[in-house]
């Protein structure tokens, strides 16, 4: 798996307000992230942290500037190519977990494979079961809807890791968890990133998480600043 470094140059994201007037929600002059680094993104609510993460995941194309992961410039890819790139290289964890409640733990974890495979191979299934086991989850046929919040976030983490991504993006992964679950999920995230030598970028307000990062950037009023 290729390790991934990121470079953001002159990135801006503009939106229209309710009056149709254009305003800038995110502005990044320059950001370089080395492969395998652990980067924290902090800042007040509504400052543009999640927008930055979406731009880095290729979910949102910037109004100007470039986002490059290794040699891949995301704005040069079309919608389908960006989806395939995300599937191959990016694992994402969301604050609200965003599981499919009607599917089982195992089916949720295997879901990204269904975008490209008819059926998971024996190895892929074993990998999924291994991840679920490592994350301390039991009874893989339980539906996601009946899991506790801590369990749901662990399933979401297993889903993010199923494709063995070289980039791990997490948006407030512990914000809706109790302290014990938050600590567990944080450990699991760092372990997984370390094991897979993945570049880890976490948006968080949690000092316990931010203190473990190699580097922490602040987003204030849409402007990225390096933390002191």
């Amino acid at each position: 798996m290729a390790e991934q470094s990121a470079t953001l140059s002159g990135v801006t994201v503009n939106r229209r307000d309710s009056n149709g007037k254009m305003f800038t929600t995110l502005s990044v002059d320059q950001l370089s992230i080395s492969a395998g680094a652990c980067i924290g993104i902090a800042g007040p609510s509504g400052a543009g942290k999640s927008t930055l993460l979406d731009v880095m995941a290729g979910l949102l194309l910037p109004s100007s500037g470039t986002v490059a992961w290794g040699a891949t410039v995301l704005s040069n890819l079309n919608d389908r190519e960006r989806a395939v790139w995300r599937r191959q290289y990016v694992g994402q964890v969301f604050q609200d977990f965003l599981l499919i409640p009607e599917l089982s733990i195992l089916a949720n974890v295997l879901l990204p494979l269904s975008f490209s495979h008819l059926w998971p191979s024996v190895d892929q299934r074993q990998h999924a079961l291994g991840l679920i086991h490592d994350l301390g989850l039991k009874d893989v046929e339980r539906r996601a809807a009946v899991l506790s919040r801590g369990e749901q976030q662990r399933v979401a983490l297993a889903r993010a890791l199923i494709m063995r991504p070289s980039i791990l993006l997490a948006d407030e992964p512990t914000a809706s968890l109790d302290q014990a679950s938050a600590a567990l999920v944080t450990d699991l995230l760092f372990d997984a990133a370390g094991r897979q030598k993945a570049t880890l970028i976490i948006v968080s307000h949690d000092p316990a998480i931010l203190s473990r990062m190699d580097q922490v950037h602040q987003v204030v009023a849409g402007k990225l600043q390096e933390a002191p």
Binding site: D79, A83, R87, Q92, P112, F115
Partner: peptide, 15 residues
């Protein structure tokens, strides 16, 4: 939102 999650996870529009 559900379909957007799938796209975030790497599903194409055709999926």
């Amino acid at each position: 939102r559900r379909y957007a999650i799938l796209r975030a996870l790497g599903a194409t529009r055709s999926y």
